[in-house]
Design a protein around this nucleic acid. Sequence first.
DNA 1: TACTTCACTACCCTTTTGTGTAGGGCTCTT
DNA 2: AAGAGCCCTACACAAAAGGGTAGTGAAGTA
Lengths: 207, 207
Amino acid sequence: MTKVLIVDDSRVSREAFERTLSADPGYLVVAAIENAANAEIACMSDQIDLILMDVCTADDESGIRAAGKIKKNYPNTKIIVMTSMPEYSFIQKAKDSGSDSFWYKEYGETSLLEICNRTVQGERVWPDALPVVMIGLARSDEFTERELEVIRELAQGSRYEDITEALHISMNTVKYHVKNILLKTGFKTTLQLVAEVVEKRLILPKY
Amino acid sequence: MTKVLIVDDSRVSREAFERTLSADPGYLVVAAIENAANAEIACMSDQIDLILMDVCTADDESGIRAAGKIKKNYPNTKIIVMTSMPEYSFIQKAKDSGSDSFWYKEYGETSLLEICNRTVQGERVWPDALPVVMIGLARSDEFTERELEVIRELAQGSRYEDITEALHISMNTVKYHVKNILLKTGFKTTLQLVAEVVEKRLILPKY
DNA sequence: TACTTCACTACCCTTTTGTGTAGGGCTCTT
DNA sequence: AAGAGCCCTACACAAAAGGGTAGTGAAGTA
């Protein structure tokens, strides 16, 4: 039985995570708290095997620091950092703090359970890219498969003509997709798009 | 007196590093070996305070792994990883191995001593970008100050007109610099340049 | 002094990107 | 059957980027 602590400042999220984990008989949610600062207290009073910790803002790194402290004092407690932040540098910080795994809220509940299982087994699960859907300036719309392919091509430095050959579509179609991508993201040029996508490591939408 | 071990497969480099450190009375080079695999043996036989470890290729990560093992068994031994590889992902791996600091060979000997001093003091020194001069596809020529500024602007997604305003030069001058940059790097478009520069974190030439 | 490098400007011309509009075929859903 | 979403295509036009050549002035160097 894995004893779990949930840390998330949103009540809705806490309850959602609790439901997800409670569905699996292998997990017991012993507490679901709001503040990362209290996480260590929870660890002291009860032996926690796994912590799901949400960190929402890049400025407030208190969650990351708290994770580092807990990991130092309770090395056997596994910590999964969760976020919806499209900042790759944040992943680095989380990794440096000693946390075990990383999870995006956007990935759905099935994959969360999978990450939990693998983490409890001792595996450390880290993505090497953020999913493109997390792109900061994107509208609520997601991208179509074709648009993702075009973004991937552009991020490699491909010109329209290169994309024409790579995807076996006409130049007009390439322009059509690029136009929609720029519309959805709000960028004015492909250069802006690529600078952002590559900088924040938003290449692979798969985990 | 800081006891130093130098690991570098190039004899010329070993001797250069030895000269640099021997000039400072605070350092004693106890050994200068060729292979990272033997570094641990050297640590066993003699108490090493600081290891300067060169890792030359991205494929062969034995140096990184050796650093990880040594750091685990001799946590008080400081390790500085050195490279001339223009791969940012490599920095991440070195960081993950537990090494303390990072140094580029291109930075000159004075800064190596500085990094050594700071590392011995307990500081961990890591760059957040690779110098642009290390760009892989660049010709032997370096970039002029103005060209670096233009590259930096492009890497932020700036259009020619934006650069015009940012640097207070005419559109023709922007084109002139971009043309020279593309010539020196061998890239065909600014998009290619930016994808590469941002991907490998080649933005700031300063340490 | 003569030579080189760098930063800057200008003009012309070609290629590539970006924008708008318009339509066909396909699949999935209501 | 009708509508919506996606992928594809086409054409035309505007804007930006890329390439060549050429010239000026300033600074440093042989």
